[in-house]
């Protein structure tokens, strides 16, 4: 964080990062995780939502060795260390993909689509990737 940012401190906004894309076919999941990690330094009220194919980002057992691509899935487990603890997963999205909470590599709060809609509306900034 720069000095300039420190001076501008005091403003705390609710940031919601919405992940709707599967992790490896495109770079969006990885680069959106990079935004989330940087955002930790700004002491904002950060939440992450995983809906639609975004739930595949936090599925256990991702092994990228054969594809020779970096496996960034363990980083989701490190978010807690950055004080990013509000991870929400949509029930309907998991159901549609035959997944349950047991299949996920991080502790999450499961929300219904209706609850997810309420969460979105309560935010100041919504970033979707």
């Amino acid at each position: 964080m720069t000095d300039e940012m420190m001076e501008e401190g005091g403003k705390i906004k609710k940031f919601l990062y919405i992940n709707r894309k599967a992790p490896h076919g495109t770079i969006y999941a990885l680069e959106s995780l990079e935004v989330v990690l940087i955002s930790a330094a700004f002491e904002q009220d950060v939440s992450l939502a995983f809906i639609d194919d975004g739930v595949y980002e936090i599925v256990k057992g991702q092994d990228t060795k054969g594809a020779e691509i970096k496996n960034f899935s363990p980083t989701y487990r490190a978010l807690e260390g950055y004080d990013i603890e509000k991870l929400y997963v949509e029930k309907e999205s998991m159901d549609a993909r035959g997944l349950t909470e047991k299949d996920l590599l991080v502790p999450v709060k499961v929300l219904t689509a209706k609850e997810m809609a309420d969460l979105m509306e309560s935010q100041d900034v919504v970033m979707s990737f």
């Binding site: 709707r20 809906i51 639609d52 309907e92 689509a113 997810m116 809609a117 309420d118 979105m120 509306e121």
Partner: peptide, 15 residues
């Protein structure tokens, strides 16, 4: 893609 369907699922009254 499902952006249209997913949006309609999540849009709230008055939005």
């Amino acid at each position: 893609r499902n952006a249209f369907d997913s949006c309609l699922t999540h849009v709230k009254k008055g939005s």
